[in-house]
Design a binder for these strands. Sequence first.
DNA 1: CCCTGAACCTGACCGC
DNA 2: TGCGGTCAGGTTCAGG
Length: 270
Amino acid sequence: MPELPEVETTRRGIEPHLSRRRIAALDIRQPQLRWPIPRDIQQAVGQRIDAIQRRAKYLLLRLQQGTILMHLGMTGSLRILPADRPPGKHDHVDIHLDNRTLLRFNDPRRFGAMLWWTDAPETHPLLRNLGPEPLTPAFDGNHLWGRSRGRRNAVKNFLMDGHVVVGVGNIYASEALFLAGIHPNRAAGRIARQRYDKLAGAVKQILSDAITLGGTTLRDFTSADGEPGYFAQQLLVYGRTGQPCVHCGNTVRQRRIGQRSSFYCGRCQR
DNA sequence: CCCTGAACCTGACCGC
DNA sequence: TGCGGTCAGGTTCAGG
């Protein structure tokens, strides 16, 4: 479900409900996620939530002492609900707040994660070696160009590598490459500096536009209050196999690159 | 260091 | 109706 815009939409949705509240209880019905939820996460109970942050596709609940680190995987979602709402299928965790509400974590495929970390969040092994945030000045064409020298990997895989830049998933990678006119299968190391300027700009534009529209709802994504995202209507190539390219009318193609479906126009993208 | 493919898990859908 | 195969928004890990 979630790429960066969906995670950011979720963060913005839950923030006003969590900020400055205390955690009253943690109800863990299914601890077997991507990694088991650690027992010592119970240290969170009784603590006040000072901030809700995002790093890459991770959500960070910053408590007085310690951080709950969450990832939504492919199918995870978070909802704010009344405390007495009975849990349904795949509702694995409830974080009860001190005002008779709860934050509910649902994840059918259980690729998501909920972890506990007491040191500075940026020192966590999962966060330590991540690339820059795409919507900051640290990410630009020069960064992509420099990191790509000598790499024979397809540029789409390169762009989705979290050590290069975070937050660009399968949908937005296809979309950004289309906007930049770059073929997804082109070797990353064989793309000129100028074209990387364009690609970095396309990534920034596509992600910020998607955030503005509340993310992309393909099947089941909803924000924390249950609203779908409206960016799906803006998708130019993703999921449009066989339909005409919006620029040139050529047929949109689909092929597997690095285990993932990729969508592109063979005429506009070189 | 770079790259590839397997693995984790459930559910929807399609053809027979 | 059932069964097998394919696909799905992510990311780590092992191995070459």
